[in-house]
């Protein structure tokens, strides 16, 4: 097997939540005299001691309820936050799709936003120019591409964001529940496109609530609960456990 694309080693992330945040000089000064004004730091363990590796070309599904730490984990891998403990290594061009259309400027046209958005991911304008026809075609926006983005519907907005991200030619794609956007047809098209890139050897980290989507796309899965990894394994087992859950109650009653 080739070298892993993503290595996550004993990674933890704590967020310090201040119940009485001392974010002004005034509060800090008054806090010297009044205990009530002092901050009460409350440490929230968003991710606790998570380790896994993803081989090149593999697809890993991250599952879990809201607040289980899966999105934080993705942000850590994307390099947005530094981990509190542990080590993260990634090899290859990484594109985080944590939210679609981040950095879109409402006043700019779709075309201008494509250049801006692509350059946020480190693309040169020259490279974007070469990709532009493909992005436009995929987004199905037609002449709307020359309209300011503020006039877009939310579906068009998401389509544009997705089209840019998908054409950046990622070696590692971090996708955070982004497939719940757009109409069914476009969703299908996105999924097909991800599938195609997977066949081209792309590594995928996929956060989703939907077991079906994880089962469809991923080779392995990880289930998170309260920041901890509670289950991991082959997606085939996942389908088994889903079917068991569905079947057993019927048998017992």
């Amino acid at each position: 097997m080739s070298e892993p694309a993503v290595i996550v080693e004993h990674v933890s992330k704590d967020f310090v939540l201040h119940h009485n945040a001392q974010d002004t000089l005034k509060k800090r000064f008054v806090g010297l005299f009044h205990k009530r004004w002092r901050p009460q730091p409350h440490i929230f363990h968003a991710v606790e001691d998570v380790s896994f590796t993803v081989a090149r070309g593999e697809a890993l599904g991250l599952m879990g309820h809201n607040g289980s730490g899966k999105s934080t984990l993705l942000s850590l891998i994307a390099g947005i936050y530094p981990p509190t403990a542990g080590r993260i290594l990634t090899r290859g061009r990484l594109v985080p799709m944590i939210a679609l259309g981040v950095g879109f400027s409402p006043e700019l046209t779709g075309e201008e936003n494509i250049y801006l958005n692509a350059s946020l991911f480190g693309l040169k304008n020259r490279e974007t120019r070469a990709l532009f026809p493909k992005i436009l075609e995929f987004s199905e926006l037609g002449d709307f591409i020359y309209e300011p983005v503020k006039n877009y519907s939310s579906g068009m907005y998401a389509r544009l964001g997705f089209s840019v991200a998908i054409h950046l030619d990622p070696e590692i794609l971090l996708a955070d529940e982004i497939l719940s956007v757009g109409d069914a047809d476009f969703q299908q098209k996105c999924l097909a496109r991800i599938e195609e890139m997977r066949n081209g050897g792309m590594t995928l980290l996929f956060v989703s609530h939907s077991q079906d989507q994880v089962a469809q796309f991923c080779d392995r899965y990880i289930r998170m609960e309260h920041g901890k990894m509670v289950a991991a394994g082959d997606v085939a087992n996942l389908i088994d456990s889903v079917q068991k859950q569905k079947v057993i109650p019927i048998q017992t009653t």
């Binding site: 994307a78 390099g79 985080p96 944590i98 939210a99 981040v102 946020l120 991911f121």
Partner: peptide, 8 residues
């Protein structure tokens, strides 16, 4: 918004 979503 930007800084929390994309690394550059």
């Amino acid at each position: 918004d930007l800084l929390k979503k994309i690394y550059f």
